[in-house]
Design a protein around this nucleic acid. Structure first.
Length: 309
DNA sequence: TTTAAAAGGCCTGAT
DNA sequence: ATCAGGCCTTTTAAA
């Protein structure tokens, strides 16, 4: 080996494919549009989805009609596992056998069976905790499309690129509440500005990612100490970035579904801390330790699948 | 043209 | 301690 030390990070491109990946294991398009992340776009020229994953790697993903997934990853991997490991880690391939789980869930629950029949293969991804946290801080009473436009505006303002690496906490912390308001965040502006300042200056680097190694309850307790973060947003971060596969974010859609199907005794009541816990328990009882994944398929049918496209 | 609803949370006042 | 109601911004679609 005659690798030289270079001042600039060695930006390189790697590519490969994952074979034997049927649609029941991954529906790439539905997964990326399922409201768990908001800055992935389909690059028509390249014929692939494009986004940035944890570690700042730019990733292209393409799924054809067959059982192969093609990927291309760009970045400095000198201090990281190999590229394919990074891709599999993001998609959580090999960790959760969704095809097998989905079949079991469908035979256990008729409502899930209907959602699975129309949209199998919606996975829960492992996101960058930082981006996921700020994403769902922007998600209060906003439709998925608007969450995307808010986050693209924030990225463009702080990092210069709507679809590049998400701004660092330091960069977000230097942006004023008024600026966030001007970017269309509305009453969420104060929450984002305050959280950014706290993450940047009051907490150790990597604090959010460190919550991966604590329990679901402990992670929620930490997250809900932020102004603007209640149980629902905390559970979104737990499920989509912190490996808490039993987290059930009870939003307006899941709450409606729960009252109609899973916790009928709550029909006609309003959502409280007590009923929030009952909904989570009902999902755990029905679907088991990966119930957050089942929730994502049900959510998709209610919130995304019913709309056009 | 007005109104409701959108991956909510905080504050207040009443039991 | 627990819960219902009002409020906070903006956008889109339905009435």
């Amino acid at each position: 080996m005659f690798l030289m030390e270079s001042p600039a990070p060695p930006l390189r491109t790697f590519s490969g494919s994952v074979s034997n990946l049927p649609r029941e294991e991954l529906d790439l398009s539905a997964t990326l549009r399922s409201g768990q992340l908001f800055r992935w776009v389909f690059d028509a020229e390249k014929g692939a989805w494009r986004g940035v994953i944890e570690g700042g790697y730019k990733l292209y993903l393409a799924q054809g009609d067959g059982d192969d997934l093609y990927w291309e990853l760009e970045g400095d991997l000198s201090n990281a596992p190999d590229a394919e490991t990074a891709v599999r880690r993001f998609l959580r391939i090999g960790e959760v056998d969704l095809a097998e789980r989905g079949e079991a869930w469908a035979s256990a629950d008729g409502h899930f069976a209907r959602a699975w029949a129309s949209h199998p293969g919606i996975r829960v991804l492992r996101q960058d905790p930082q981006e996921c946290f700020f994403s769902f801080l922007c998600a209060s009473v906003a439709p998925i499309a608007r969450i995307g436009s808010m986050l693209q505006a924030v990225s463009r303002e702080c990092a210069g690129d709507a679809y590049g690496a998400f701004p660092t906490p330091d960069c977000l912390a230097e942006t004023s509440e008024e600026t966030f308001r001007a970017l269309g965040l509305g009453f969420r502006a104060k929450r984002v500005a305050e959280a950014a300042r706290r993450v940047a200056s009051d907490l150790p680097p990597g604090f959010l990612a460190s919550l991966r190694s604590v329990s679901h309850d402990d992670a929620k307790r930490e997250l809900t100490t932020f102004f603007g973060v209640g149980e629902k947003i905390a559970d979104c971060v737990c499920l989509f970035a912190l490996d808490k596969d039993a987290a059930i974010p009870v939003d307006t859609h899941i709450w409606r579904m729960a009252r109609a199907w899973y916790v009928p005794e709550l029909a006609g009541t309003s959502l409280t801390a007590a009923s929030y816990a009952k909904v989570g328990q009902a999902f755990l009882d029905t679907f088991g330790d990966k119930c957050g994944w089942a929730q994502q398929t049900l959510f998709y049918r209610a919130a995304v699948g019913s709309r056009g496209t």
